[in-house]
Design a protein around this nucleic acid. Sequence first.
DNA 1: ACATTACATTTATCATATAAATATGCATTC
DNA 2: GAATGCATATTTATATGATAAATGTAATGT
Lengths: 228, 228
Amino acid sequence: MSKNLTQQLTHKLGEAIVKGDYPIGTRMPSEAVLCEQFEISRSATREAVKMLSAKGLISSRPKQGITVNPETNWNLYDSDVLEWILKSKPSLHLLKEFTQVRFAIEPMAAKLAAENATPAQINQMETALYRISEAQEGLEDQLDAHINFLNMILVASGNRFFIQLTQFVDAALRVSIRYTNQVKGISNTDVTFHVKVFNAIKNGDASTAQKLIYDVLSEALTLIESRL
Amino acid sequence: MSKNLTQQLTHKLGEAIVKGDYPIGTRMPSEAVLCEQFEISRSATREAVKMLSAKGLISSRPKQGITVNPETNWNLYDSDVLEWILKSKPSLHLLKEFTQVRFAIEPMAAKLAAENATPAQINQMETALYRISEAQEGLEDQLDAHINFLNMILVASGNRFFIQLTQFVDAALRVSIRYTNQVKGISNTDVTFHVKVFNAIKNGDASTAQKLIYDVLSEALTLIESRL
DNA sequence: ACATTACATTTATCATATAAATATGCATTC
DNA sequence: GAATGCATATTTATATGATAAATGTAATGT
C-alpha cells in the first residue's frame, strides 16, 4: 500500500468509485463524513479528493458536495485509474477494448520505430529480444520480457504520445493473460516473430514492421471476439 | 480563469512547468515559498501540488521537496496537461505528433463506429453533419462543427478508450489551424467528404469509413511533414 | 573506512476558525 | 401566477498554528 494517508485514501476511494460503490452522478459522503469513516484529518481527506478530481473521477463544489463524474470524464490513460479498473472489473469485453487500442496504436508505432529508432534504441531492443529468448528457457518471466520488447517499440517511435502508452500496453497485456492464460495468440510466444519485427525495425523497413504487428494483433482480436 | 485559488495555482504552476520554467529533475520552491510567492495559504498550495502530482507532473517527498518529474511521467492525455502544452510550446513538430496519434486512432474508430453505432448516435451524427453545412454558410463556427462531427465518430466507436480521446482530437484540431490557418487539408472543408463518411457509417460499411478517414489523415500528415 | 547516531529541513497530518459559494425555500413584486 | 430577489443553511474553500513523520546530511564513534 502507498505510504502516506492521502495516497491511501486516494486509492481506496478511486477503486471504490470505479467498482461502482459510489454510483455515477450521485453525491459521495461529505468531506466531514469521509474524515470520520477513514479516521483521518480534513487536510488528508481534501488532498485525496483533489487528486481524484485531478484524475477526472469526481468534482466538488460548495453546497453540492462531492459528486462522481460520468465515465467520459475519467482519465482512463492515467495509470492509477487503469489499475483501479483492472482491479475492479476485469472482463473479456474490457480486454477487447484494450486490444482495439493496441490494434490502432502499435502497428503505427512499429512503423515510426522503423523510421526513427536511434542506434541506442536498436541496441536496447536487441537486449529486450535476448530477454525474451532467455525467458523461453525459463530464466526470466516471459510476460515481462514481452512487455519490455513492445514498450521499446513505443519508445523508439519517438512520439511522446505513443511513449506515454507504455503503461497502457503493459496493463493490456497483463489482463490478457488472465483470459488466455498464455501469451501465445496475444503476442506470439515464438521468438522468431519478434526477431522478424526487430529486423524490420533495424533495417528501417517500416511497412514490414507495421504489417507484422498488425497481423498478430488482428489475430489476437479475432481470438478475443470469438470468445465473447 | 478558474474560480478557486487551488485551481488557479494548479494552472499557473502546471503551465510554468510545461513551459520549462521549472526544469525537469530540479526542485521547485518549497511549500512555504510558494505560499509567499502566490500569497495564498498552505492548504490551497498543498492541494494544488497534489493535483499536479496526480497528473504526473511533480512528486513531493519530505526533505527532498517538490521535484519536477521527467516528461514520460506526465499524463499527456489529461486535458489540462494538453492545454498547458498547447499554450506553452505549440510547434509544427507537436502538430505532427498529434496527427500521428489521430492517424492511428481515427480510422479504427470510424471502422468501429460503422460496426457499432446506435440509431441515436447516427441521428446525432446527422445533426453534426447539418452543423457543418450550416457553418459553411457562416452560421456557425466551422471548426467547432468539424470537431463535433469527429467526436461523434469516436463516441460511436463504443470503445471507452477512444471516447476518452475526444478532448485530445479537439486539441489536435485546434492547434492544427494555427499552422494551416484553414481546416482544409486537415479535415476536408468540403462537406461532401463528411457526407461520404457519414453514409459509410450509417450503412455499416466499416472498411469504407476506415479508408476515408485514413486517406484524409494520410494527406494531412504528408502536408505537415512537408513543412517541417 | 564503515556504521551509527544526531540533527536539521521539508513535507505530512491534525485541529480549529473563518470565508465563500450555492442550492433551497420564502417572500415580494409585477 | 410567474418571475425575481432575498434570507438562510449547508458544504466546500481558505487560512493558520501546532505537531508528527520522513529523510538527506553531517557528526560521531569504533
